[in-house]
């Protein structure tokens, strides 16, 4: 459970919870699950964990550069913009992410924003 529910940025813990080349997930009650990625270049990104094609869980794809290849049908999704690359068309929402002093923060309103039951 996330303790700090106040402030603009949501602290989701230390950077070393996600090894490079991997992603981990953050379910949101009443909202969309978020995938947090750590690339081989040590960048961090967060996206809604749903491929724009057929909702594949992007967190389970292969990460290369700042692209994730969806595990279901191999669409390539830009981690920076959430857009499908190449011939494919579609876009998944990105969640602004900040790294500060070894911890990861997500923009609170992007995580728990609009949706209320």
């Amino acid at each position: 459970m996330i303790g700090a529910m106040t402030g603009q940025w949501l602290d989701i813990g230390p950077v070393d919870q996600i090894s490079p080349g991997n992603a981990r997930t953050l379910p949101v009650r009443g909202g969309e699950e978020i995938a947090v990625f750590h690339t081989l270049d040590n960048q961090f990104y967060a996206l809604v964990n749903k491929c724009p094609h057929k909702q594949g869980p992007l967190s389970q794809g292969i990460v290369h550069g700042n692209v994730v290849t969806c595990p279901l049908h191999n669409w390539n999704i830009s981690l920076k913009t959430g857009e499908a690359l190449g011939e494919d068309k579609g876009c998944v929402p990105t969640i602004p992410l900040r790294v500060d002093a070894g911890r990861l923060y997500l923009l609170r309103e992007a995580v728990v924003g609009k949706k209320v039951a």
Binding site: M5, Q17, R24, T25, L26, P27, V28, R29, G30, V116
Partner: peptide
């Protein structure tokens, strides 16, 4: 084990 665990769960106040 981290491959099988969520980072955390977000529960907005209303939940």
């Amino acid at each position: 084990s981290e491959l099988h665990q969520h980072l955390a769960e977000v529960r907005p106040l209303e939940f």
